[in-house]
Structures are given as structure tokens and as C-alpha cells.
Amino acid sequence: MYRMRLPPWLVLLMPAFVILLAVVAIPLVLSLYSSFTAFQLTRPETITRWIGTFNYEKAIGDANFWAAFGRTVLLLTVALNLEMLLGLGLALMVAKVTHGQRLLRTIMMFPMMFSPILVGFQFKFIFNDNVGLLNNALQSLGLTDVAIPWLVDGNLAFIAIVTAEVWTSTSVFAILILAGLFAIPQDPVEAARVDGCTPWQTFRYVTLPFLMPFIYIAMAIRSLDVARAYDIVQVMTAGGPARRTELLWTLIGRTGYVDARMGYANAMGYIAILLSIAFTVHFFRKLSSARTSLGMGD
């Protein structure tokens, strides 16, 4: 009887191939393919209805899509910058502490220990216009006597979402920047002091350049995070009211699973992923140029 003999290396690699195929390649190809069809989740047979680039053209012509796109970029910009500044401040303060620093570092990471869904619910409660903590506090302090519609007004809701994002993720920056602070060689810092720098100048001209690679790593990580932001927003406002806080992925999620238009959702998803890739590429470029300028290899 004839038996096919595969070379041993192929046999050994086979499980890896199969797994990669199953979890990466097939979903990728399938979703890419379906973005060129009129696939609807409720009518599986539609997956064979090829409509070319129609979904993409539709997305590009869709004002709602671009509004969500723009809002995502805005959230990314605002949240990342705020987190960077706050994280930097936090790290600088924690680095100065001599006693109980370990404890502080642990406490600093607390926000990261909660599920974003729960954080969403918590901030939904805090910003609730009737029973919310914030309005109650403002009213008790006599700062206002109206119920501020935090999660209803588009701008206020954006602020509320940014607050929740910043609260959960500032520690990512703080931890990475703290690691950077510990890694800074003391010699150049002392040289700067002798060269006449005030503490601020020492920070500005010596410490900060050393921290930049760490900041860019945090930026790269967090830009991916925020570009796919879904959970906190979904819980707090579900993109509403009336799309006022719609982000890319709340829009895509709704289109795919609620409206069941999976082909269209996949097309938007691919455009959204381009955004993530663009940010990642941008920050990695920045990272490598910051490292090069420090003479840390290329």
C-alpha cells in the first residue's frame, strides 16, 4: 500500500500552520471577502452576492462614518495627550517619593485592574444627570442648581468619555514613564546641573529627551487601545444620544450586529484598521527617531 511520506519538518510545523490558518488567515480572508459582498447576518446566503467596492464607496460617502472617524481621532488626540501629561506628572511625583514608593506604584495601577465595562458603568453613574455623583456634588456645593445633562449633550458626553478613558489608562503612561525615569543615567543630569540648569531646564533639556522613547511606546500602545475604543463608550452612551458620541467601533458594531449588515461593517472595519495602522506607524517612527537621537541603536 502506498503511504504519503511528508518531510518531518512539515509534519512538525503542521499544527502551527493549522492554528494560524484557523485563527488568523481564514477570518481575515473571510471578512475581507465579505466586505465586497452584500452579506447580512440574518440572511447567510447573501455572502455570495458580490457587489465589488460598493460597501467601501458607501462608507466613504457616508457622513455618519466620517463623523465617527473624526470623533475617534479627536478622542485619541485629546485622551492620549491628557494621559501623557497626567502620567508624566504622576510619574515625576512618585519618583520623588522615597518611602512607600512600592505601595504607591501598586495603587497607581488600580484603575487598570477593573474591567472597562465596569468603569463605564461607574462613570455612567457618576455623570448621570439625576442621581449622579457629580451633579449631586455640584448642587450641594451650590455651584449650580440645574441638572447638567452630562451624557446627553454631545460635548459634555465627550468630556465624560474622555474622563473615563483618562481615569483608566493614565497609569499606562505613568508606569512606562516611571520605568524611564529609573533608567535615566544620573551623569548627564548632574552635568546639566553643573552646566547651570535650573531644575526645570534640567528636565526640559536632559530628562525629557531620555523619556521620549518611553512616552512613544506608551503612545503606540494606547493609540491602538483608543482607536478600537468600544466598551466604555458603549456602556456610557452607546454612541448616542442620536450618534452624538458615535465612535468608529460603536458604529461598526451596531451596523454589523444590530443592523446585521456585516459586509458593510467589515468594509468600515478595514478602513478603521488603516487608522490604527497609521497611528502605530507614526509612533514607531517617532520612537525610533527618539532612540536614534539618544544613540540607542537604530
Partner: peptide, 18 residues
């Protein structure tokens, strides 16, 4: 140090790498 008008050369040079 900045008010002492001194210059210092360090053992490991302590140049600003960037």
C-alpha cells in the same frame, strides 16, 4: 551647582547623548 560657577569633568564623560 549652577550658582557656583564651576565646571566639572566626570569620569564617564557624562555627555548629553542626544
Amino acid at each position: 551647582p549652577r550658582d557656583r560657577n564651576i565646571s566639572m569633568v566626570f569620569q564617564n564623560y557624562a555627555l548629553y547623548p542626544h
